[in-house]
Each structure stands twice: as structure tokens, then as C-alpha cells.
């Protein structure tokens, strides 16, 4: 057995090493825009956060071994927020992936938040409002108190979905221990 290396913050200067300019677009022919802002406990935009997403393709396949699907889709994206704390991913709506009980999970995008001030990154998920019926049975959403579930559901806007990440405050986003 080897002992784990601890996590440390990504700090304010991660763009030097981690910026991939085109990685906010997950492939050609991606018709879903996911955008939002990262906000601190005072509602002030966080301008030095890095987000990564990991998701299945439209058929519910994760490309975990480095393979890719149609149009080069690999399911991984990375985006540094801009000076307004805003991010944008151009992707596709994921299909439903397997649940531990043999059923299906509600479609979701796995999202990871790194920033100065966070000594370990935060895991959350983005769900979609049009899947409300599936949310009832989702084993992960079932762990979340009903009053906080709305923080994990993207809001529809014209041709896109909005998902703000509240690190603290009344609408603090639900974050997970994995």
C-alpha cells in the first residue's frame, strides 16, 4: 500500500499550466450550451476558478479509455472562468448511464470546481429540468435534502442551460464526497 498524496489549492495562477484554449468545446456538432457563473459567499463573481466536466455521450457511454465517439467527442471539458466569473461549455446532452441498482441514472454532467481558496476541488453534478420524472428515482439526488436539490438542476434559457455555482450562501450548490 502507498500513502495518498494530499490535495492543495490550484491557486490563482493555474492558467499558466492548465489552460487548454479550445477545451470548452467538447467536439464538433455540439448543440448544447451550458453556461453560468461561479459566485462566492457574498455573491461576488469568482474570477480565478477552473471547471472541468466529464459526461457520457447521447447514448450513455463514457469514453473512459481514451477512445472517442462521433465527431471526436470524448466527454471531457475544461474551462477557466473569465473576468466576470463566467464559464461556457459547448457539449451535448448526455444520455442516461447505469445506476448501481441496475436501472438508469437521470442524465447528468459531472462537474469539478477548482479555485484559489479551495484546498481541495469540489465535485458536483448538473441535472436537466426536462428530466424531472427521472430525478425522483435518481440514487444520487435521493441523497440530497429536497430543499437543496434545485441547486443541481440547470435552468433553461434560449438554446442553452444556465448553471450557476454558489460556493456559499443561501443557494450554496450541493457538493459531493466521492
Amino acid at each position: 500500500m502507498s500513502a495518498l498524496t494530499p490535495s492543495q489549492t490550484v491557486g490563482p495562477y493555474f492558467r499558466i499550466g492548465l489552460e487548454w484554449p479550445a477545451a470548452w468545446r467538447l467536439g464538433e456538432a455540439c448543440d448544447l450550451t451550458l453556461r453560468g457563473r461561479v459566485l462566492d459567499g457574498d455573491g461576488v463573481p469568482v474570477t480565478d476558478a477552473l471547471l472541468e466536466i466529464w459526461q457520457a455521450d447521447a447514448d450513455g457511454n463514457y469514453f473512459t479509455n481514451g477512445a472517442h465517439g462521433a465527431h471526436g467527442f470524448r466527454g471531457f471539458g475544461r474551462c477557466a472562468v473569465d473576468a466576470a466569473g463566467a464559464y461556457r461549455f459547448q457539449t451535448i446532452k448526455p444520455g442516461a448511464v447505469a445506476a448501481p441498482d441496475g436501472g438508469r441514472q437521470a442524465p447528468h454532467i459531472n462537474l469539478l470546481v477548482m479555485a484559489r481558496g479551495l484546498l481541495q476541488h469540489l465535485y458536483t453534478r448538473v441535472y436537466f429540468p426536462d428530466d424531472a420524472a427521472l430525478h425522483e428515482a435518481d440514487s444520487v439526488l435521493g441523497c440530497v435534502p429536497a430543499a437543496r436539490r434545485h441547486t443541481l438542476i440547470a435552468r433553461p434559457a434560449a438554446q442553452e442551460f444556465t448553471f450557476d455555482i454558489h460556493l456559499q450562501g443561501e443557494h450554496e450548490t450541493v457538493f459531493f464526497a466521492l
Binding site: D40, G41, V97, S139, Q168, F175
Partner: peptide
């Protein structure tokens, strides 16, 4: 970390393919 660390406890979820 003062205005950025979540105040709520992390929620433990079942381990899934995701």
C-alpha cells in the same frame, strides 16, 4: 477560503459509473 469554502457538509453519494 473564507468566502469560498462551502459551509454545508459534503454529501456522500453512492459510487456509480460516473
Amino acid at each position: 477560503s473564507d468566502k469560498r469554502a462551502p459551509r454545508e457538509a459534503l454529501i456522500v453519494i453512492p459510487e456509480t459509473v460516473s
